[in-house]
Structures are given as C-alpha cells and as structure tokens.
C-alpha cells in the first residue's frame, strides 16, 4: 500500500494516537512524526493477517510505548511550545466552538490521566476497533478488554461530568 494513501487514510487517526500520549504540542508533533515513520517502515511487513487499521494502530501504539519509555518522567506541565494549536472549525458559532473545544480538551486530559493499558484500549475502542481486534493489539483476552473498557469509559464519563 502506498504511504501517501496510508497518511491520507490514517493520518488523523495517527494524530489522535499521538495526542493521547503527549500533551505538549511540540512533543506531540514529534511523536506523530515518529509514529508515521514507524508505520511507513512497518508497512513492508504487513501480511494481511489483520485489517490495515488494526495493524497501523498496533504499530502506532508500540511506537508510542517507545516514546513513553524515553520521555516518561514527571507529568508534563505543558510549557511554552512553538507549535501552534491546530485551528478549530470556523464553521460553528463562537460560543458553540468554545464549548466544544473545552469538552474535547477535557476528554483528552481525562484520557491522558488513565493508566497506559486502559488508555490504549479506550482510544482504540473510540477508533472503532472490536474487542477481538483490541485484544490482538494489546495481548489480553477479549473478556479483559470488555472489563477494562467499561471501567475506563466510566472513569472518563465521571471526570467529564465532574468538570462540567
């Protein structure tokens, strides 16, 4: 599969994986580049045993694990960074746009507060992967995926409702 096509199809997904691991925008962009490079290299080894999306997500999360291993220190306090925040959708009214940006930001913060495995599972679920596909990526049973996912979603809902 052509890499341009992969980026076109899965670029936004890769960006969301990066944002679930890294709050600092500069490091987030760096991680997105690292993940994309890893996916580019790994596509040669794709044998079609799973869907492209599952394979891409497995590579992306494994690469993110590497990122965590090298950068895992104290939680980031989002220092100044020269990368600009992507522009929000201008088609909405300002009030609605601000409210939505705030909700998305709260969700991202809540996701990043989750421990690693529930974070991976919940983000893959939100990307539309089935329990079985998530189980293959994470190396846990599908039953465990269900248990972890329910707990994680409950935690996210509680945190979002608490912040509102």
């Amino acid at each position: 599969m052509d890499f341009d096509q992969i980026v076109a199809d899965y670029g936004p997904l890769l960006s969301r994986v990066a944002s679930s691991y890294e709050a600092n925008l500069h490091l987030q962009q760096e991680l997105l580049q690292e993940i994309s490079l890893a996916v580019w290299q790994a596509m040669k080894g794709f044998k079609g045993n799973s869907s492209v999306k599952t394979y891409v997500l497995r590579v992306a999360h494994n690469k993110a694990v590497t990122h965590v291993a090298y950068h895992a220190k104290q939680p980031h306090n989002e220092p100044y960074c020269e990368v600009e925040n992507p522009s929000p959708d201008t088609s909405m009214s300002t009030e609605k746009s601000v409210s939505q940006t705030s909700m998305v930001s709260s969700l991202l913060q809540a996701v990043r507060r989750l421990p690693m495995q529930p974070r991976q599972i919940v983000t893959m679920s939100m990307e539309g992967l089935s329990y079985q596909e998530i189980a293959e990526v994470c190396g846990v049973s599908a039953v465990n995926v269900g248990v972890i996912l329910n707990r994680a979603k409950k935690t996210l809902m509680e945190q979002l409702n608490h912040e509102q």
Binding site: V7, L32, Q33, S36, D89, L107, S125, M126
Partner: peptide, 17 residues
C-alpha cells in the same frame, strides 16, 4: 465519547521531514 473524540483537531504529517 466517541463523537467527541473524533471532534478533536488533528495535526498533519510532514512528509518532507
């Protein structure tokens, strides 16, 4: 949650980089 998750703004991959 899923709907909200997909509403986040995304960055683009710098292919030259």
């Amino acid at each position: 949650l899923e709907a909200l998750w997909h509403q986040q703004t995304v960055s683009t991959v710098d292919f030259e980089q």
